[in-house]
């Protein structure tokens, strides 16, 4: 079919990385809100509160997903191959950068 050639795959892969960021960001922000509402910070697990653990887990999954995406995508200079990888890096960088406050800041 000519109207949806390689482009569907290209666009989907290019948006995959940023999309993982968007989902992880929403998930961690959502967990933060729900945790504060349900007093999860009071629930102590071994080293962390349940709240921080839940957010760390979601963050980890997001980072892992971006990492796997980058490992899986082939490299190449042609735009069709290059942009999906660039998207993967955008996703990885953004997931790391925007959510690292999970480690360092006061939660509620």
């Amino acid at each position: 079919m000519t109207w949806a050639d390689w482009s569907t795959r290209f666009l989907a892969l290019s948006l995959a990385g940023p999309m993982i960021w968007a989902i992880t960001f929403s998930a961690v922000y959502g967990l933060h809100g729900i945790g504060c509402a349900l007093a999860w910070p009071e629930v102590d697990l071994a080293f962390l509160s349940l709240h921080r653990l839940a957010m760390l887990a979601a963050w980890g999954v997001g980072l892992l997903a971006c990492g796997l995406l980058l490992a899986w995508l082939p490299a190449g200079a042609r735009m069709r191959v290059w942009l999906p990888r660039a998207g993967g890096w955008v996703g990885l960088g953004a997931t790391f950068f925007t959510l690292f406050p999970v480690i360092v800041t006061t939660s509620c």
Partner: peptide, 15 residues
């Protein structure tokens, strides 16, 4: 809003 949530959005705004 709690500081951690602000920090997420602060980081995204910087990024």
């Amino acid at each position: 809003i709690p500081h951690m949530a602000l920090a997420f959005f602060s980081a995204a705004s910087v990024l």
